[in-house]
Design a protein around this nucleic acid. Structure first.
Lengths: 152, 152
DNA sequence: ATAATTTATATTGCGCGCAATCTAATTGCG
DNA sequence: CGCAATTAGATTGCGCGCAATATAAATTAT
């Protein structure tokens, strides 16, 4: 007789990968919090800044596609970043539906202070870079399969 | 000369495991949504029900430890579950600080309808059970290391 | 036993995250 | 061209998630 595998208890909390992901996301958020507090950013705001540090002057839609967020989330978040003088929001003249997001000098310079963050996270993970990269790729592959189902 | 690895671009969004986890958690949530709508539950409410279906009559604190959530999140959530007649909240007589959470008949019977959920999620993952279990264990190990850092 | 400390839950406030709805601009189609 | 359909962003409302604070009960120390 075969040993009972976790597949035999599908409703068990500890068997659910979604809860593993959910609770790990919150754990990450708690580790990030004190680091980002120093930058005056929340984690989603930090993600937006990461996008902008890679490429400045993009539309709200582009940020949303990159982060899987919609305007209902981004509009107020971007207004807060603008109020903090980290970004500027301007209507595109070519396509007046679009709002383009550009870094201010303050937003640019925050990048230097942010460089310390990934190292701290890596240390907290207590894990080699190689292991993290492998795990990251697996998780991203899972995410993309989930999103593919949603797109049907 | 070695090829540049992702470790050389720590601020790149796509290199960050935390964003992989964050965005996968949201992807899971979006897959769950239509399934849980049928049960009249949100995802965090579903998690609470999973805990109660495993063991009924536990204190708020126990649910919180299991799900890594505090009373600021759980108290209003549990009140909504009570309003939906899925649980009952009663002060413990032994320790009047505690509030014990018990399933109602309706809450018990919802379990049968919930059995279909994990299968649908598994299908959406487009992944073998074995792969998911391996990935889940790795993610949980990462979460526990992160939480260990927080506990210091 | 009384006071100080700890513990369990509740409350308030803020920032997401997302569905639903709205407006205005652009595109596509006849 | 002119009108319908699409698209980008904003708004509203609700449910988390968590920090900070409050309250009351239990525990510990004295």
């Amino acid at each position: 007789m075969a040993r009972k595998s976790s597949a035999d208890f599908p409703l068990r909390l500890d068997n659910q990968i979604c809860f593993a992901v959910y609770s790990t996301a919150h754990a990450f958020n708690r580790v990030y919090k004190p680091l980002l507090d120093k930058l005056g950013l929340t984690y989603p705001q930090y993600l937006v800044m990461l996008v902008l540090w890679e490429r400045d002057g993009v539309a709200v839609k582009d940020i949303g596609e990159r982060l899987f967020l919609d305007s209902g989330t981004l509009t107020p978040l971007l207004k807060r970043l603008e109020a903090a003088d980290l970004i500027k929001r301007t209507r595109s003249t070519e396509d007046e539906r679009q709002v383009l997001i550009a870094l201010t000098a303050k937003g640019e310079s925050l990048r230097e202070k942010a460089r310390a963050v990934p190292q701290s996270i890596l240390a907290a993970s207590a894990c080699s870079v190689g292991e993290l990269v492998t795990m990251k790729n697996e998780i991203v592959a899972l995410r993309d399969r989930l999103n593919a189902v949603l797109g049907e």
